[in-house]
């Protein structure tokens, strides 16, 4: 299945990537040829085959509800690109309306 420029732009938006025009062109071509390879799978009959989500089947281990030490706020915030006091600071979401 070929992928269109518009689809590439849509996906970029979903993935929060602001692709340049040149990137859109390049990715449209490259993703198209990768998808061509991938589409060969659709010829394979997988009716009734269970999907493998975990290569080594196991049950989910469960943790006892015991609170441990928290990371001190200073350490939690140490890598923040921008902070304000003990908060992470981000630009406001400007709604469309």
């Amino acid at each position: 299945m070929a992928i269109t420029r518009d689809e590439v732009k849509e996906i970029a938006e979903l993935a929060r990537l602001s692709l340049s025009d040149e990137e859109v062109t390049r990715f449209t071509g490259q993703l198209g040829s990768i998808l061509e390879h991938i589409d060969a799978l659709s010829a394979l009959d997988t009716t009734g085959i269970e999907p493998t989500t975990h290569a080594v089947p196991m049950d989910c281990p469960l943790r006892e509800d015991v609170a441990g030490a928290a990371l001190p706020a200073e350490r939690a915030l140490a890598a923040a690109p921008v902070r304000s006091g003990d908060f992470f600071e981000v630009p406001k979401f400007v709604s469309g309306s």
Binding site: I38, L41, S42, L44, T46, I49, E50, P51, T52, T53, A55
Partner: peptide, 15 residues
């Protein structure tokens, strides 16, 4: 279903 799930099914066949 057509992509991720399908791939996980083929994964079962490979395993």
């Amino acid at each position: 279903d057509a992509y991720y799930r399908k791939a996980q099914q083929v994964r079962t066949l490979i395993a």
